[in-house]
Design a protein around this nucleic acid. Structure first.
Lengths: 130, 130
DNA sequence: TCAACAGGTTAGAATAATTCTAAACTAGAT
DNA sequence: ATCTAGTTTAGAATTATTCTAACCTGTTGA
């Protein structure tokens, strides 16, 4: 399925810029990127697109499920007086965090740590809504 | 242990502002807050402190372990072409994310969802370093 | 006790990510 | 071909956070 069809499938008008972005992004491989890195890629291909459009498009793509946005618990830094290792519920309605004691969560399986690395902690975020 | 002692314990000079903040924050209860909410609290108590100082202090408190900073994977929004449910390694050296297949992780225990809420997904972040 | 200075505080400027605005453009329906 | 609603854009606006540079204050040691 080409990108124009993909865009039509989700009721997005296949404009030049959306096609450009979709070609960069939706090539079947799993990728992580930011608005900036995408713009660099596009520019280095000799084409051009404004950052505002990239944000517009990526947000649209997310809202129709073509992309996912990695959880960043909002834009402000949240501090926690609980300095011991623990996990969180995230109330999606309010953005509020609730602590979860580490022994409330147990793992029956964890992936191998990539070669040359060591684990530096496991954080679980359970998203909840009303 | 009073807040002045707590500050001395971690080699931070107990200045007026740090004492003020420590009293607000380190009262033994677990709390989540932002620089802004702390400033509001202080101001509504009739006292005053600049936002820059709050950031300075909170960051110092974090660096000495009095506080924890909730993981926000950096300040830029990261998008992911993998829209299916999955988890991530976070390479702390570079900020890079690596996908983890959901069946690479299993739970033997999960906490009860708070009353009136339903789960809306569980995200695991495994922090790794070289 | 107090001078001296290293470290802390501050207002306001700077930075950076993201969104908004309003004017110009364009895909798709007629 | 034309019209219109939806898009794109440059640049301004916004927001969180850090930086700057001048001023202030704990602490040390004489």
């Amino acid at each position: 399925m080409n990108v124009v069809e993909k865009l039509r499938n989700v009721n997005l008008r296949p404009t030049k810029q959306r096609i450009l972005l979709a070609k960069q992004i939706l090539d079947g491989k799993n990728k992580h990127f930011t608005a900036e890195t995408i713009q660099k890629e596009v520019l280095s291909n000799g084409q051009s697109i404004s950052l505002a459009t990239i944000y517009n498009c990526l947000n649209k793509f997310v809202s129709v499920g073509l992309l996912k946005q990695i959880d960043q618990q909002g834009e402000v830094t949240i501090f926690d007086t609980n300095v011991s290792h623990h996990h969180h519920f995230l109330n999606q309605n309010t953005g509020e965090l609730i602590d979860i004691d580490p022994d409330e969560i147990g793992f029956s399986k964890l992936p191998d740590i990539p070669n040359g690395f060591e684990s530096d902690g496991v954080e679980v975020l359970i998203k909840i809504k009303e």
